[in-house]
Amino acid sequence: MTAQMLIIFFSAIFTDNILLARFLGMCSFLAVSRQIKTAVGLGAAVTFVLACTSVLNWFVYHRLLVPFGLEYLRFIAFIIVIAAFVQFVEIVIERFSPVLYYALGIFLPLITVNCAILGVSLFMIIREMGAVMSFFYGAGSGVGWALAIIAMAGIREKMQKARIPKGLEGPGITLIIAGIMALAFLGLAGALTPPQ
């Protein structure tokens, strides 16, 4: 059981990276990957929200929507849960830890529209995971996303001194680097097989 959870966790980070293998959360990845500091902040916020919302959405889906036969409403239900949770976290952090609020605060509203959050909830339903498993899947996906954006920010900080062909500046070169990173992560494919 424990081994299974660990496999889910690590395969979500490396072999099935939510960003590099599933292309989710690309918008904020391209826009907020200029400095390591902000990348770490956003990565931490995404990991926290992902781990919590995947479990919350599991309960909403299996305990609320399935018993009433309302599965088709899951898109709306998940979006509301995510938006409400992010809002709630923002209020709590602002109340109890102003320091953390200033560090993470600006990223929280961005997270509601981050496709990775909704994507993890939808994948969790499609792959028929249990509640505990979806927690590990959510947490692992968050760590994987954070890893990718922090690595990208590090490369982009170094790249400021590099000479890049005109049309490739900005998003173009970022996409090429993401492609090379995806290649590297592809090398880990097969090292871990998530249980079905």
Binding site: A21, G167, P171, I176, G179, L183, L186
Partner: peptide, 15 residues
């Protein structure tokens, strides 16, 4: 595979 999508989009943006 995934890297192909990144490279194809990067080239399209470049052009």
């Amino acid at each position: 595979m995934p890297p192909g999508a990144f490279f194809a989009l990067a080239l399209a943006v470049w052009i």
